[in-house]
Amino acid sequence: MTAIDAGQPVLAAPERRRPIGLLLVAVPVLLVIWLIIWPIISAVIQTVWVKTPEGGNSFSVETYRFFFSDGYSLSNLSITLWTTGVCAILLLVVCLPIALYLRFSDSKVAAYVQGLAIFPMFVPSIILSFAFIRVLGPNGTVDLVFNAVGLPKIRSPYLTPWGPVIGLVWDNIPLTVLILLSGLGNVSNQAIEAARDVGAGKLALLWHIILPRISNSVLVAISFAVLGIFSAFTLPYVLGPAAPEMMGPFMQRTFRELFEPQTAITQAVITFGFCIVFGLFYVRSVARNQAP
C-alpha cells in the first residue's frame, strides 16, 4: 500500500507535464496557422468570394475559369511544368553520379568535389544569375573564348526557357547532392560487396541494390527541388524569356504591373495546388516505402 501511495506523484507527473508540452508546441503550431494556413485559406476565399458590382459578395469561380481558358496563362503554367520536369530530370542525372562518387570514392579529390558541389548553396540567386549572364550570355566568357580560337558564337540560353533551367539546376545541386548522399550512407559496403559477390556488375548494382535502397532519398530530393523550382522567382525572372514566363514572375507582373491582385492570388492558389499535389505524392510514396 505504501509503495502505491509513494508511486502516485510519479504516475501523476505526465499529467502535470502535459500542459507544458502542449504550450511548447503551441507556439510553432500557432505560427504555422498564422503565417501559412491562414494566408492559404484567406487566398482561396478571396478568389471564390468576390465583390459584385452592387457592392455585395458572391461565390464565383470566374478567375479560375479565366485562368484555364486564357492561352497565355496556360502557356505560362505549361512552361513552369516543363521547366520543373526538365530540372528534376537533370538534377537526378547530374547529382546522382556526384553523390555516388562522393559515397564510394576513397580519393582525396572527393573532398574537393564535395566542396564544389556544395558551393552554390552559399551563392545568392541574384549573383548566380549575373554570373550566368557573364559566362553564357551574349558576349560572355564562352563567346569570348570561342571568338579567340576562331569558333562561331554560341546560341546563348539567356532569355530562353533553358536559361532558368540551367540556373535552377545549378542552384539546386547542393541540396539534392546532400540528400542523396545521406541516403547513400544507408547502403552498407557489405551489401554492395555481397551483390558483387553474387555476380552483380556496376549497372546491376546501381539498379537492383543502390537505387531501391535510396528511393526515399530520391523522392525527398526531387520533391524538395520540384517544390522550390515550381514557385521560383529570381532565376526565371532574370534569366527566362519575357513570354511565356514561369508562374513566379507571372504572379509578380500580374500583381505589380497589371494591378490585378485577385488574378495574381488565383495564380498563387493554382501554383499552391500543384505544389500540394507534389507534396502529397511525396508523403504517400515515403509512407508506402516505409511500410513493412
Binding site: 552498407s188 557489405q190 551489401a191 560487396e193 555481397a194 559477390d197 553474387v198 555476380g199 535502397r213
Partner: peptide, 20 residues
C-alpha cells in the same frame, strides 16, 4: 579477376542481406 566473376561465394559477418 573482379569479385563478380570469381567462382567464390562469401558469407559476411553482418549477413549483408538486401533488406528491400
Amino acid at each position: 579477376v573482379p569479385p563478380e566473376k570469381r567462382p567464390t561465394g562469401m558469407v559476411f559477418q553482418s549477413h549483408a542481406l538486401w533488406t528491400h
